[in-house]
C-alpha cells in the first residue's frame, strides 16, 4: 500500500516550510530526497513520523505502519551503554541488540556509554537501533553523517539489505549515496518545499 501526502501545509518556527505539498511513496524500495540543508526535508520527515502535526492536508496509508528512524541527531540515552540504547526499542531484548551492533561493526563497543564512543560509533549505534526495530517504513535523515566514505558505504549496504522488501525513505545531501542506493531520487528546493523526480 502506497503512502499519499495530499496538500500538506506546515509552518515551523515562523516559516512556511510546506505549502500544499503533494507527493506519493511506493510500498517498497529506496526513495531518496536529495537537496540542500534548510529546505524543509527534516520537517517533512517529522511530519511523516507524527512528531509535527500539519496545519492542513493529510497523509494516508501511514496509520497502520510502524516507523523506524535514524534522526539527524543520534538521540542516544547518555546514561545507557550501546546495548541498552538499542535494546530500548525491542523490549530490552539484549540478544537482538547485540546482533544489530555486531552488524554495525561495534562488537567490542557494546558496553560503552555514548560519551566513551566517537561520533561515528554513536551514529552506528543509532543506526543499529533503527534496524533492530521491526518497522514497515525506515526514515533515514543523513544517516552517514560522521562516517568516512568507506565505512558509510558498508553501513548503507547493511542498512538497505536489512530493510529489504520494505520502504526506505532517505534524506541526504551526498549525491554518490543517493545515486548508488536509491531506486527513485527526488531533488528538493525550498522553503516552501518543492519536489522533482530526477530518477531518469
Amino acid at each position: 500500500m502506497t503512502i499519499v501526502i495530499d496538500k500538506l501545509s506546515i509552518s515551523f518556527e515562523g516559516k512556511q516550510v510546506l505549502k500544499d505539498f503533494s507527493f506519493s511513496l511506493p510500498a517498497s524500495g529506496v526513495v531518496c530526497i536529495f537537496g540542500p540543508s534548510g529546505c524543509g526535508k527534516t520537517v517533512l520527515f517529522k511530519c511523516l513520523s507524527g512528531l509535527i502535526k500539519p496545519d492542513s492536508g493529510e497523509i494516508s496509508g501511514l496509520k497502520s505502519k510502524r516507523l523506524s528512524m535514524v534522526f539527524q541527531e543520534n538521540r542516544l540515552l547518555p546514561w545507557c551503554n550501546a546495548v541498552d540504547n538499542v535494546a530500548l526499542v525491542v523490549n530490552e531484548n539484549r540478544e537482538l541488540a547485540r546482533a544489530a551492533l555486531t552488524k554495525m561493526e561495534l562488537t567490542s563497543e557494546t558496553n560503552k556509554l555514548p560519551a566513551e564512543m566517537s561520533g561515528g560509533m554513536q551514529r552506528r549505534v543509532a543506526i543499529a537501533r533503527a534496524i533492530v526495530y521491526d518497522g514497515d517504513l525506515l526514515l533515514l535523515d543523513e544517516p552517514t553523517t560522521g562516517l568516512d566514505a568507506e565505512l558509510a558505504d558498508r553501513i548503507m549496504k547493511i542498512l538497505i539489505k536489512s530493510w529489504q522488501s520494505r520502504l526506505v525513505l532517505l534524506i541526504t545531501h551526498e549525491l554518490t549515496i543517493a545515486k548508488k542506493y536509491a531506486d527513485i531520487i527526488y531533488t528538493v528546493e525550498g522553503p516552501p518545499l518543492q519536489i522533482k523526480n530526477v530518477s531518469e
Partner: peptide, 20 residues
C-alpha cells in the same frame, strides 16, 4: 529529543519513566 525518539519507537510508558 529522547522523548520523541521513544514515542516514535512506541516504547512503553513505564519504560520511558524508568529509562528517560
Amino acid at each position: 529529543h529522547l522523548l520523541e525518539m521513544a514515542s516514535l519507537y512506541k516504547v512503553k510508558k513505564l519504560r520511558i519513566w524508568q529509562k528517560i
